[in-house]
Design a binder for these strands. Structure first.
Lengths: 143, 143
DNA sequence: GTCAGTGCAAACGGTTTGCATGTTT
DNA sequence: AAACATGCAAACCGTTTGCACTGAC
């Protein structure tokens, strides 16, 4: 509500700062992302957007998500070969996905700290905690 | 050479134990995997196989890789939305891929130990260290 | 002889792109 | 008016599948 409207306007303001045009499809995509509590695939975003504006095309949604991603306003991650999932940036966290039931969990960023340090010192590799979801089996799907 | 032939025969023997038939395409795929020093995409495996046996089809390679995967003789992992990479099972390790130059590094399994323990205790989640490659920037591509 | 394994070609799902049109600035 | 954003449809890439045929057992 109040907070969500504010968050939406913040994102749109950032777009404007970067000389991007504010259009109806962009408003809709941002609103969907702001009001989403979980991670959405591009297809899910498209479906929700189309409930409000039925003629917004999937390719437009992809282009908008890419634009938001470039500006670091949203983050996407890949779990296995499945569709990528998107959410608003802000909280720093990683992702873990169950290979069996495909539920995705957020993992606090700190959990990756030690791993991150170790990769940096052994390989010089800087870990991107957002971009890929680790996989495994959730508590429910074991055994 | 000697060792590689042995390894190839070991894999084929395991196939036989599981009542799988030993065919020319399977021999070729296994030989390619045995002699590969790095991780190969299905397409790379297909190309190498076709150097020896030009009429082996990509779909057959996929089916053979899947069969070997089911028997835990090979392991595959996904890096972002790119093609999956395959290699013979055996060594236990994770993967880390550079978002910029797409080089994949192997990371000793121990590096994941603490992360693995933490996921288990906080979420009850059992990490699969093989299945997904973490991403980030390699030493060469930073800055 | 039987059935698993194969080649081919077509389908698939997620994503990207070319182009003509529409809309923001 | 100019530049950018959009819709549509087609292309794309990695992967999977249906089917008739071949070849291992």
């Amino acid at each position: 509500m109040g907070l969500e409207i504010t968050r939406t306007e913040e994102v749109l303001a950032t777009l404007r700062e970067h000389a991007k045009r504010i259009t109806a499809p962009k408003r809709a995509v941002v609103e969907v992302l702001v009001s989403a509590d979980d991670h959405l695939t591009a297809d899910e975003v498209t479906q929700r957007v189309q409930q409000l504006r039925p003629d917004v095309s999937p390719s437009t949604v992809y282009r908008i998500l890419e634009e938001l991603d470039d500006l670091a306003l949203v983050v996407h991650s890949h779990a296995g070969q499945a569709a990528a999932v998107y959410h608003l940036a802000g909280r720093s966290h990683g992702h873990v996905t169950c290979e069996n039931c495909h539920v995705t969990f957020e993992v606090s960023s700190d959990v990756f700290d030690r791993l991150s340090r170790e990769l940096k010192s052994t390989l010089g590799f800087v870990l991107d905690r957002h971009h890929v979801a680790l996989s495994g089996l959730c508590a429910h799907c074991q055994g």
